[in-house]
């Protein structure tokens, strides 16, 4: 475990208004296939603007472990492509994929070709299942991140609902198979035992990241992520818990530099892997985007 942060007793009181003006890349957001999807994406951007969120990485996954047909997967990704067209300076796409599906690699290529910047996997398969390999290999070749729905769910009633949801130990196994893949364990605040999963990630490759999103606002989770993995492997995401996710980083016992790594610099580094730069950076920040 690495040292991080500084003692609360010596910190200046938080200036929330100033903190909201600092840039933030929300790398875990959604636009859903539903009537009113345009209203939904506009609302996402309007709410994010109040919090200093400069861009969103959006996906539209099929949840519940359902093995939906490729046509449905394409329709979900089309929702994101339309959102990218409506908001080209704000929304980037993460292609949702179901491993092993006929046509899945073609769908991945189609989405990358239309400007998406990564892949989103849900809980149809564990991350280390061999059926996932072609997707991870493609992602590694193209240097795009793979964001994976994840949680360690200790209670049997929750495990039964999501038997194939990956957790920290699954990421450690997968990253041993694919050490160069850019893998992101989604939402440490997504409801599982975040202490267990962060400890299990100790053995993962340095290319495994976590994001801080989720409705669980337990104090200490961001600090523990930084202590276990280092501040450069913790990403800012909201997954719909927008104010809560901003607040948890602000209240974490970290330095301002560590907070900025989480808020946007680490995401900027991931973008740089594929030759991209962050969007809408305030003047002065864009020059040091890959620090």
């Amino acid at each position: 475990m690495q040292a991080c942060g500084k003692n609360t007793a010596v910190r200046e009181p938080v200036d929330v208004a100033a903190a909201l003006a600092r840039p933030k890349i929300d790398m875990h957001a959604h636009v859903w296939p539903m009537q009113g999807e345009a209203v939904s994406s506009s609302h996402l951007i309007a709410c994010g603007a109040r919090l200093g969120i400069t861009e969103f990485w959006c996906s539209a996954p099929i949840t519940g472990g359902r093995l939906a047909p490729i046509e449905e997967v394409r329709a979900h990704n089309d929702v994101i492509l339309r959102a990218m067209e409506r908001h080209p300076g704000r929304i980037r796409g993460m292609a949702f994929l179901i491993p092993g599906q006929p046509g899945v690699i073609e769908e991945a290529e189609r989405c990358l070709g239309r400007g998406m910047i990564g892949f989103k996997l849900y809980n149809q398969y564990k991350l280390h299942d061999p059926v996932v390999e072609p997707i991870i290999k493609l992602a590694t070749e193209r240097r795009v991140p793979v964001l994976v729905h994840a949680a360690y769910l200790p209670a049997p009633e929750h495990q039964r609902q999501q038997p194939l949801t990956s957790h920290g130990a699954d990421f450690a196994v997968a990253s041993e198979k694919y050490p160069d893949a850019l893998l992101i364990h989604a939402h440490i605040g997504g409801g599982g035992d975040w202490e267990w999963t962060l400890r299990a990630l100790r053995d993962a490759s340095p290319n495994v990241y976590v994001d801080v999103s989720g409705s669980n606002l337990d104090a200490g989770q961001v600090e523990m992520a930084v202590a276990e993995l280092g501040a450069k492997r913790v990403l800012f995401g909201t997954d719909g818990t927008m104010a809560g996710s901003v607040g948890k980083v602000l209240d974490a016992d970290l330095t301002e530099e560590e907070q900025d790594l989480i808020f946007w610099r680490n995401a900027a580094r991931l973008l740089a892997e594929q030759g991209l730069a962050p969007l809408n950076m305030p003047r002065g920040d864009a020059q040091c985007s890959s620090t």
């Binding site: 109040r50 919090l51 606002l217 337990d218 901003v246 602000l250």
Partner: peptide, 17 residues
């Protein structure tokens, strides 16, 4: 806030916005 179970700043952010 639900301190110290939860982080306190989320409530501040909501109040601000």
């Amino acid at each position: 806030t639900h301190l110290p179970f939860s982080y306190g700043a989320p409530a501040l952010v909501k109040l601000e916005t």
